[in-house]
Design a protein around this nucleic acid. Sequence first.
DNA 1: GATTTGAGTGCACAGCTGTACACTGACCAG
DNA 2: CTGGTCAGTGTACAGCTGTGCACTCAAATC
Lengths: 234, 234
Amino acid sequence: MGHATDASTLPDVSTAGEPAGVVSRQERKQRTRQALLDAALDLLADRGFASLSLREVAKRAGIVPTAFYRHFSSMEELGIALVEETTRTLRGMLRADRTEPGSYQGMIRASVHTLYRQVRAHEGHFRFVTRERYAGSGPVSRAIAVELRMFAGDLAVDLARFEHLRGWPTDDLHLLADLIVTAMIATVVDLLETRQGDSAADERTVAVAEKRLRMILVGVPHWQPSAGQRDRGD
Amino acid sequence: MGHATDASTLPDVSTAGEPAGVVSRQERKQRTRQALLDAALDLLADRGFASLSLREVAKRAGIVPTAFYRHFSSMEELGIALVEETTRTLRGMLRADRTEPGSYQGMIRASVHTLYRQVRAHEGHFRFVTRERYAGSGPVSRAIAVELRMFAGDLAVDLARFEHLRGWPTDDLHLLADLIVTAMIATVVDLLETRQGDSAADERTVAVAEKRLRMILVGVPHWQPSAGQRDRGD
DNA sequence: GATTTGAGTGCACAGCTGTACACTGACCAG
DNA sequence: CTGGTCAGTGTACAGCTGTGCACTCAAATC
């Protein structure tokens, strides 16, 4: 990408109809930026983010270490960009899965399916996020925590539209939403542990994911909001 | 501990009634070993295990880097020892909390209280374990996974003694057990995020933990084992 | 066409890393 | 008293780390 023989940049023909090889300067920059993100993700396949060095990422992206700073002021900033990349579209997709609140069952199936497709399409991203979620007190973990809180917030709002949940206090609603988000994360982990390509195992994992959510939600109609504290013995 | 002026080793009086300063050789060794574990835990207060160097740990423990190998063949081995230290007593304590299966409520309260005391008494250990749980594919993460599976296994066995759960298939039982273990881990994380010393906040966190477990368990009597798949619309 | 901008280069530096090697000296068994 | 064991020492080395600095040279701007 740097000093090598690069025949793609023709002398004239400045702005034609967006051909593959010819690029503006800022487009070229963004391409290198993406190369850095992709390089980092590659290296993160079997290691933690903290053990990742700037030099390593730069080398794999095909640039010299010091050029890294033209794109990110630190590795942490790159990490945050990776978090954003992961959740950018997913949040909206999951919200869409709950637009018409029919049955829990339908909502569960749609959400799990969306999550499944998204994880399989971007394994590296989700492996990174689930790993870094608790891995330290750095800015990356904090960014992930913020994103997850937004997921849970979205969900709490949507849950409030359901029959049995209409009367629940906000605290209980958020507790349930957190429980569901946690279950979804567990599903992500399950999927990442399932060897890719084994579609039978995938179906099993998805079935377990749906069952897990049903198990959480089956109690909803029988929960008495914040009455609590009494030992009812069963 | 090494060449420094060490007045504690008196010339004679070999094996008296276990005074503090006088030690056998293997006892001295084990003391250094413990110093290494403690040093590692100190350093892990705000960083990931992977970013921990052998030299650093050795220095904080008061020995020279190469002496580290007298105790552990690698940092990974030390990490595994830390995992073991964390779960060694806890597993039995939690089992004891479920010896007489009275009510869910009692079981919940006892378990949460045990976990609470244990976390507060060994914050560093639990911070380490919750962080490293997903942090990579290394031997440490694997050791943690094994321990957690044992916790869940214990729990599944004990759950099988309860009224409504007697007829459940093993799969469903394990799913429920995993759900509960996950909730307990979430509680650990909550406790570690709660500033230590704020007893009011502690009580709130414990209350949330109990409520979360109740929310999971309230559905148990209404779950129809593996009937599933049908969309029952609520 | 002349000038400015800025992505990427190459070198340099101090500081850290794991670990090989030969060593010391206190403890312990004979 | 003698000799072996072994926890801990000190030196050394190659390889990696982040980042400062002066640079090139194509693209963008005037």
